[in-house]
Amino acid sequence: MRTRNTNGLGLLWLFALLSLAIPSAEGAEKIGAEEVMKRAYLAEYYPGDDMKAKVLMRLVSGDGKERIREMSMLRKDLQEGGEQRYFIYFHRPPDVREMTFMVWKYPRRNADRWLFIPALKLVRRIAADDKRSSFVGSDFSYEDISGRGVEEDVHQLVREERLDGREVYVVESRPREARGTEFSRKLSWIDKTTFLPLKEEYYDTRGDLYKVFSADELKEIQGFWTITRRTMKNVQTGHRTEATFQEVRYNLKLSDTLFTERYLRAPPAEVR
């Protein structure tokens, strides 16, 4: 297994990090849309140095039929705002128990993924497009789970308003490269205090609303605001996915070696 360097982005991320570190007097400063989205990116996808959670996904079809995906999810950041590693261990449905899944995420290019199929005792690397591939059959794409690069879109601050009692920025994002992107326009409601997205609306290439994200429950865990319950609903098909994050823990000092093929085949007890 190879490790990859990422250059070029360092400065950008450093800048992003710095801007996050500067405490802001409430309402006193005006920040740009790009800035809001950078902070949101970090707040949602990079809290802590690593993370572990038990994720329960309910995939609900338009006529109310359900599929369950229960998994342990581990994340480790190699760089704040940069490369990340994910490890997923499936608990349910029972037939897929012990299936494991690993993602090496790189900014600006498709992630590498490995899947271990216990029935065949086989590891296969999977190359798929992050932008359109569904995460384990849910309404979340890989991009929705691990984040879409802020620089991939042009952002514009539409307005500031209150959403469910919280002050938010409403930012409109349009992809720089229309080809290969499922949405033509995205609206995000970014909480001014936590910088977490409370709601997102995705519009398809014809300009019709098709996906709505909502953060249904926010909790502060070890000082990090975390979306512990979220829903992605496809309003065109009626299909929706509810994801609940339980037993969330940050900064566990996860080892790099955990995210290798060896552990994919024989995951240690700590990942289960």
Partner: peptide, 26 residues
């Protein structure tokens, strides 16, 4: 197990709706 795991793999590698049109949720 093989079949169940293949189906999960399919839902990760292809459009889930392709699979949903040939097999129901339960």
């Amino acid at each position: 197990e093989s079949i169940a795991q293949y189906l999960l793999l399919l839902s990760m590698a292809a459009k889930p709706r392709d699979l949903n049109s040939v097999v129901d949720y339960p």
